[in-house]
Design a protein around this nucleic acid. Structure first.
Lengths: 173, 173
DNA sequence: GTAATGTTATTCGCTAGCGAAATATTCGTC
DNA sequence: GACGAATATTTCGCTAGCGAATAACATTAC
């Protein structure tokens, strides 16, 4: 069967190898593949986003704002958390994005320490546009799998994500 | 069955949703899961790397240098390519890493435009140390799968990576 | 052999983002 | 009901990295 980059990587690994305790080949190949796919999705998203005239981080911010359970509405701190960016970083993003008119900030209603971030109509529009492009690129890749293969893949991935989420939760105490 | 974050994401997606043409739920869940796992691996690598006293980008550079088919030896341009970083960025990395003694640069033998980057003994040592830690974190996650599940997962992932690699190759003409 | 073109690495000006300190507001407690 | 602790955001100084321009060398064409 044709080899992919991960296969080649593992082969080189074994030949030239130097580590005392070897890492399991299948695990190594799996992590490399996950990385490859993730990178690809990031790259296609980047393209889609560039096509509609957004910067990467602008898209990410709008996206984060929209996929909440209160879509289009959040505080800077919440955004920082969900994007894995520092609070200071979020302030910077909001600053420039507010100037461009994709969102606005207003002082928090009840608690005046807070700031409420809200997507504008125009912000929503451009984000949707990017989403449509992004989705079609993902569909392209996923379509090499049959529906039942996709289901099987999801089942296996889910086993891992559940383990990860559990691990994460455990870390937080 | 227990739901993971991806499941919840897709549910929210559907409830509040606003896109004209819906994105297929299974595809969306799959991309979210791939992203979650990839992020997790990145985070565990980051921890491992911090434990041995390396910066992220220093580890990445050493790693890139070591997994070549000429391990421990490369030109800046090759590194830039394999890391997906600009040439200028690589120059900066090499600068600081040379100071710390993890690698050294010397003028290219045949072609004197080139520069040869070589890992030092100490660079190799610290990278190995990080690798051992990194590997064990990955093994932890992967161990929720049975060997045959892992094999099945790799088979499905490989279908996608092959498609991606083909797409990439096609783009390059 | 020399001019023109290509290739490789580095320098320079600029942007995004981080961590720590500063600022503004709220909550708890005596 | 005032004062200290807690919380939310922003400001500030600094670092990594990008793209464009530059420098140094090599290759090709004539």
């Amino acid at each position: 069967m044709t080899k992919d980059e991960a296969d080649l990587h593992v082969e080189r690994w074994r030949d030239h190898w130097v580590l005392e305790e070897g890492i399991d080949d299948d695990i190594e190949a799996m992590t490399v593949r996950i990385g490859t796919i993730s990178k690809w999705f990031k790259a296609t998203t980047k393209d889609a986003v560039a096509q509609v005239g957004l910067e990467d981080f602008e898209y990410e911010t709008l996206h984060s704002l929209m996929i909440r359970d209160t879509p289009g509405l959040a505080s800077p701190g919440e955004l920082a958390q969900s994007m894995g960016v520092s609070n200071a970083g979020v302030t910077g993003r909001l600053e420039s994005m507010e100037k461009k008119g994709w969102l606005k900030r207003k002082p928090g209603a009840g608690d005046r320490r807070r700031v409420e971030v809200e997507a504008t109509r125009e912000g929503l529009r451009i984000w949707r546009e990017a989403m449509a492009l992004r989705g079609s690129a993902e569909t392209d890749v996923a379509s090499v799998l049959t529906p039942s293969e996709l289901a099987a893949l999801n089942k296996l991935l889910k086993k891992m994500t559940l383990a990860i989420e559990q691990e994460k939760a455990a870390e937080e105490r």
